[in-house]
């Protein structure tokens, strides 16, 4: 098991190096000169020269890259050109907000998507299956920012049940925090629920025709036990692998969701950074999400082996 994890880690290294090159290249490609922006209205040549020296913009590009990677490895992702805060600190500040949003969205998606997928597979070809499929495909086709706007229109503007925007930290007032986050989490979770439902359904359909399920039924086990203990446990493997891929979807979805509900999280940070040409922040965010994605994939691979007894023995 340990050697398996080590091997997977080794494979991830070249990918991470390539990502760091892409991310560094982004900085060189973003429009506008942040130094000119920082130098203010007068654009005093001396100030500009000083700032260029200070931020190492005069070094050859490979040197700049190596310096940047070296710093990144020690947790120094640079300083936000706008707020003068270290990027890592800024990300650390916003990340818990998005993690709360993503967790709530995931809970919603799992509690709707997986049971719906199982039900739809068991009742294949019936009206229930048909309705579940139509709802899932609609969930995938609805642009989540529009869903957010419509919810604000109905729930906040018309019925005045929930606030349209804002954020309350969880440790300050958990109840209020969850209440404010319900609508964004629902919006973010819709597409995920749909994806989970479709994958659970197809995984269950594959498993339900297998020999061991037929054997379990032949043994006279209760249908409920056959489905949950024998079929679902095995269908879970591909679903777990999928959840790593959903991580990317969650982060990307959070960008739009946070924008609509003005949630001060990671996604809002990306958009603000792009519009403010805050290089270091954009780089930091892409780097952190990409590495996070690789870690999630690694975890999914490990879970895959753990869930599959045949692979575990090797």
């Amino acid at each position: 098991m340990l050697s398996f994890i080590l091997r997977r880690l080794l494979v991830a290294i070249p990918t991470i190096i390539l990502i760091s090159i892409f991310v560094f290249a982004l900085q060189k490609l973003l429009p506008g000169d942040p130094i000119l922006a920082m130098a203010g209205e007068e654009r005093d040549p001396e100030t500009i020269a000083f700032l260029r020296e200070k931020y190492g913009m005069n070094d050859p590009i490979p040197v700049q890259y190596l310096k940047w990677v070296g710093n990144a490895l020690t947790g120094d992702l640079g300083i936000s050109l706008r707020t003068n805060q270290p990027v890592l600190e800024l990300i650390g500040e916003k990340l818990p907000v998005t993690i709360q949003l993503a967790t709530m969205a995931m809970i919603f998606a799992i509690s709707i998507g997986i049971p719906a997928g199982i039900l739809s597979a068991i009742k294949k070809g019936t009206a229930i299956d048909y309705v579940a499929n139509v709802v899932a495909l609609s969930g995938l086709s609805i642009p989540n920012f529009w869903l957010g706007i419509m919810l604000i229109l109905l729930v906040s503007v018309k019925w005045q049940l929930l606030p349209a925007s804002g954020y309350v930290p969880f440790d300050e007032d958990p109840l209020r925090s969850i209440q404010v986050m319900i609508m964004p989490a629902f919006v973010l979770g819709t597409a995920l629920a749909a994806t989970l439902m479709r994958h659970t359904r197809s995984a269950m359909l594959t498993v339900l025709t297998s020999d061991y399920v037929r054997t379990a039924r032949a043994k006279g086990l209760k249908e409920r036990r056959v489905i949950l203990k024998h079929a679902f446990r095995n269908a879970l493997t591909p679903i777990v692998t999928l959840s790593a891929l959903l991580f990317g979807e969650l982060i990307a979805g959070a960008v739009l969701t946070e924008q609509i509900f003005t949630v001060p999280g990671f996604g809002k940070l990306v958009v603000d950074a792009v519009f403010n040409r805050d290089y270091a922040v954009v780089q930091g965010i892409v780097l952190v999400t990409a590495v996070g994605f690789i870690v999630m994939n690694l975890l999914a691979d490990v879970a895959y082996v753990l869930l599959n007894p045949r692979l575990r023995k090797q």
Binding site: T15, L18, I19, F22, G248, E249, I251, A252, G253, V255, L256, V270, I285, V286, T289, A290, V291, F293, I294
Partner: peptide, 11 residues
Amino acid sequence: EALLAAPFLIL
């Protein structure tokens, strides 16, 4: 793989 690691929309 490196490109796939960055979420589609963020990229």
